[in-house]
Design a protein around this nucleic acid. Structure first.
Lengths: 262, 262
DNA sequence: TCGAATTTGTGCGTATGTATC
DNA sequence: GGATACATACGCACAAATTCG
């Protein structure tokens, strides 16, 4: 298990703790030895003990709670997030459906503001160069949670050219709040025909990890989703989910053309 | 940009450095200020300066080279890998098509062997418990390259129950070598109707990173692909691509059922 | 409600090892 | 070899969060 007899003290201490987790001696939710405790037991400095615990946290095997302790957190089998079936449904957003299917309680918080779209978003929405300081999109930041635990972040951008003057300018306002983009757009006569998702992965920023209550440096799966009505983009969103919690499931029929440009 | 006026010194220093990268003052490959340099310039301790640089490294914006310095490493614009259009085509595998479209020269090496499927693969292929030591799948390991550079690894599993006694038992043998699974299966009267891809991300193992000529610890996007003919699985594959090189593009029409179990 | 004890996190200092130039 | 750089390891102090009596 050990590589090259491990020159560094903090790595050896981390190995030792990891082994106690692997063997089952320390179980999910158990408290790991405290920094001062470890230091005293092993005759090492508190800094070194702290470094060792940080290794486990960065590996996702533990979470540190300030003032309380460091606790074992075994990686769960990632949940499947279905992203290609039944995309349009009259009852709630795709996320809610997915959580329902898995018997978990979905929740979300959001914050909308009207802004001028940055250039990357302009590209994705097919907007022309801005004229002066005109605000031309509604940006909504979501935090989605399952059983009260934050699990997905999303930033949605909707062009005011599409929604201005309609009852759904603010996504989470009015009768169709929480209904998903497709239903809201349909209600103002803009049916969404096609979707495109661009999937990647990267390390989470400090801010993202904090909002997801994840260790800094966690791997995130990123989705850039764009919705089309005919040939025009009517919404685009940046979605991130922690890679250790979710896998995305796409599916389709073979040999069919199913993209927006055909 | 800053949240809650950033209580912590090392985070403020990190912000400052990040801003110098974002603004273009520090470019790809440039050396960031050294730990002692930062400490002297800003009147902070070396430990704090070191912590600030670690933040950028953990965000993937910089790499630290012991004895040399810490250098800016901007993420490259990833290539798009189309995974939902024109899945079945008579001319070459989906990977070849994709590279063609981008004007890059596709290549691959492979190695096939007949083995007994491990339990996880049995699940994915819907195989029963093995009887003794019977070998029941053909496993093929691929390394795909673009312009001579390795960019994608794939391990494919095909049940012998489907291909035994046919000319395509070995994927890269005979007339249909390099033609993709769908064409090969079709040639023996097994049309592939549906595909399912499960997408995740994780750190690459040392071996994977080496085979991809990537730095150890790179983030990989993982795909578990399964092909169905009717209700039976006829192939499954584990595909990995470096997250800094590729994003995956999926697309579809809204509100259609397009999965294998409907 | 308050305070004492504990724990993590941050920040400072120093020293040493080792890689790079 | 010498200078410089990062990484590890030690020490200490204090702040902030949590727990518990």
């Amino acid at each position: 298990m050990n590589r090259e007899d491990e020159r560094h003290l903090y790595l050896r201490v981390a190995d030792q703790l990891r082994e106690r987790i692997r063997s089952g001696e320390l179980q999910e939710g158990d408290r790991l030895p405290s920094v001062p405790g470890l230091a005293a037991d092993l005759g090492i400095s508190r800094s070194t003990a702290s470094e060792a615990l940080k290794v486990l946290v960065s590996e996702g095997l533990a979470v540190a709670r300030s003032g309380s302790g460091t606790f074992v957190r075994l990686p769960r089998e990632p949940q499947r997030l279905i992203r290609a079936w039944y995309r349009s449904t009259p009852y709630g957003s795709p996320f809610m459906q997915d959580m329902d299917r898995q018997g978990r309680e979905a929740g979300w918080t959001y914050e909308s503001q009207t802004v001028q779209a940055p250039s990357e978003i302009r590209d994705r929405l097919g907007l022309d160069e801005p004229t002066g300081d005109v605000e031309d999109v509604v940006r909504t930041d979501y935090v989605f949670s399952a059983d009260g635990e934050p699990v997905m972040l999303s930033t949605s951008w909707e062009p005011l050219a599409v929604t201005r003057g309609t009852p759904i300018v603010l996504p989470e306002d009015g009768m169709l709040a929480g209904q998903g983009v497709a239903e809201r757009m349909l209600s103002i006569g803009v049916p969404i025909d096609d979707w495109v998702e661009e999937v990647g992965a990267r390390l989470g920023t400090a801010e993202e990890c904090e909002r997801l209550r994840h260790a800094p440096g966690s791997i995130l799966v990123t989705i850039q989703r764009t919705y089309y009505s005919g040939d025009t983009q009517v919404e685009t969103a940046d979605i991130v989910v922690p890679a250790d919690r979710f896998t995305l499931v796409y599916s389709g029929k073979m040999g069919r053309v199913s993209g927006p440009d055909q």
